[in-house]
Design a protein around this nucleic acid. Structure first.
Length: 517
RNA sequence: GGGCCUCUAGCUCAAUGGGUAGAGCAACGGACUUUUAAUCCGUGGGUUGUGGGUUCGAGCCCCACGGGGCCCA
């Protein structure tokens, strides 16, 4: 588009059309700002210039002059700085604007009538609103109160904001924060911090893996079979092949095929999709870490997991001690507790529970404590796990490994090498939820086929979470998979464990139900 | 799936027993050359989530639907 075309964009005659373009009444403040944009265009001033001559970031100005200037001291250093206006204080002949960068660092601009002239000052007062991106050029000085400032000799709007920001000193409702995260990020420091914390954690995890010679792999998200976990999948349709596909519920089976192929230390950090509930600990799409190590087992995975978590906390938070909003705290560092599932359940419920305990007895116990379990699809291992969560898991705040799970709920895990009736699997509990899980992986293709067939029988009985028989995976196993340890960890849950936040606060843009209209 | 709570101005919240819908910030107009949640004077801004119902009269009572939250299973 040419300059001429830009400056003849629709003006007053189309104003009312623009006001109702989205079919709803436009709030007064939006109308006012749209009018300012039109006025600027009519005056030949670009409200959205393609570039402004920035020479320094807000952070660079801050760090260069931090505590270096006395109140009232002026330098001759000229800078060009841009940022979003979060605070305006216009007095008669001297205006102050506080601008903010994406990380929440702020810097003050000062516009004096003496420096820029009456006309420029008037234009500033007329055109600039809270929320606008504003560029100024000028000298770095400290105000009389000692506030680091850029004393403008010229200014220019970098981008006009057409919507008013919410009150900056009141918390928005959780719904508004989630539905308009962009606004949340502008107005709330904690929101900005969590985004950066998440990035730091993921980066730390990758670095720990790299330092241990793991290879990062991206395996398919669109799969012809859903497997690798017990969960209901999303399904979709592929036009070219005219087949139904599933969004993956886990990368496990592909990563194991990679191990068969010789990628002996492999990990993936990516999204899984599970067509289940959405609440304060579950999101339909969530970030998952999985790792496999040939010639490892669930013990080496425990060491790896602790290393990943402790290093991530140190890298991203600088400490392993987590303090929650309610003042309680727990330490992700130090030695982690290590308990066994059946003995800890027995101790907590006051009755000896073993892999031999009958299903009827377990269902009776579950009923006693108010757990509702569908008898049609009930298997003893599943009931034991529910009982364990009720009696023990919900109360584990400090990191705790829980070892040796029922075999019938662990179809991809090998039987324990010395304890009969259980699988070499642990879950890691923190803050009352499952943060990670690991197995000594089942690598016997014949036993694996039997486990899949048992899963298929569950599916036939109506268990929508049961796995399918994956022939491609079985065939891969038949080529020989080395003895291996495997581990999976929820990235969102790691953030939850490190911050005390709900899952929707750790995911920048979680899925929310669309509003009607 | 069940129960309870909630939805009012751009944002955060008020509104006696059913009787003209208000405040702070934000906006608009004015004053002000060192403010920093600036201050002072003045003004505008509402389909009270949506749709029905009861009533002379509904933000408030009843029903349905939608969004959100908490608890339970």
């Amino acid at each position: 588009m040419t300059e001429t075309a830009q400056s003849t964009r629709p003006t007053a005659p189309n104003q009312s059309d623009a006001d109702h373009a989205d079919g709803v009444d436009v709030p007064e403040q939006v109308r006012v700002r749209r009018a300012k944009r039109e006025r600027m265009l009519a005056a030949g001033t670009e409200p959205y210039p393609v570039a402004v001559p920035v020479t320094h970031t807000i952070g660079e100005v801050r760090s260069s002059y931090a505590d270096a200037l006395e109140p009232g001291e002026e330098t001759q250093d000229e800078v060009g700085v841009a940022g979003r206006v979060v605070h305006l204080r216009n007095t008669g002949k001297l205006c102050f604007a506080t601008v903010q960068d994406g990380a929440g660092q702020t810097l003050q601009y000062m516009l004096s009538q003496r420096e820029v002239g009456q006309e420029e000052l008037d234009r500033f007062k007329a055109d600039v609103d809270l929320g606008d991106h504003l560029f100024v050029h000028g000298r770095v000085i400290a105000s009389r109160r000692g506030e680091l400032s850029v004393f403008a000799d010229s200014w220019q709007l970098a981008a006009k904001s057409l919507r008013p920001l919410p009150a900056l000193h009141k918390e928005s409702s959780e719904e508004n924060r989630v539905r308009r995260r962009h606004v949340d990020l502008i107005t709330r420091q904690r929101a900005r911090d969590v985004v950066r914390l998440r990035a730091a954690v993921v980066r730390s995890l990758r670095e720990t893996f790299h330092s241990r010679d793991f290879v990062e792999l991206e395996t398919p998200m669109l799969q012809t079979m859903h497997g690798g976990a017990a969960a209901r999948p999303f399904s979709t349709h592929m036009n070219a092949f005219d087949i139904e596909l599933y969004l993956r519920i886990a990368p496990e089976l592909f990563l194991k095929r990679a191990v068969v192929g010789g990628i002996e230390r492999v990990f993936e950090i990516n999204r899984n999709f599970r067509n289940e509930g959405a609440d304060s600990t579950h999101s339909p799409e969530f970030a998952m870490l999985e790792a496999y190590e040939a010639y490892g087992d669930y013990n080496t995975m425990a060491t790896l997991t602790r290393d990943l978590v402790v290093t991530a906390a140190q890298d991203a938070l600088g400490t392993t001690v987590i303090t929650l909003g309610d003042g309680s705290s727990y330490d992700l560092g130090g030695e982690w507790a290590d308990i066994q599932l059946y003995p800890s359940l027995s101790a907590a419920c006051g009755e000896e529970i073993t892999p031999e305990t009958g299903l009827d007895r377990l269902l009776a116990l579950a009923d006693q404590v108010g757990l509702s379990i569908d008898p049609k699809t009930a298997i003893s291992g599943k009931v034991v796990e529910e009982l364990w969560e009720h009696f023990v898991g919900d109360h584990l705040y400090a990191p705790t490994f829980v070892r040796d799970f029922p075999i019938d709920t662990s179809p991809l895990t090998r039987a324990h090498r010395s304890i009969p009736g259980v699988a070499e699997k642990w879950d890691l509990y923190v803050r009352g939820f499952e943060l990670a899980t690991a197995y000594s992986e089942l690598v016997d293709p014949v036993v694996q086929r039997e486990r899949f067939e048992a899963q298929a029988r569950l599916a036939a009985r109506g268990d929508e979470e049961a796995m399918q028989v994956d022939e491609e995976f079985l065939q891969a196993m038949e080529y020989g998979m080395p003895p291996s340890g495997g581990m999976g960890m929820g990235i969102d849950r790691l953030l939850m464990a490190m911050t005390g936040l709900g899952i929707r606060e750790t995911i920048p843009f979680p899925l929310v139900k669309p509003l009607e209209h």
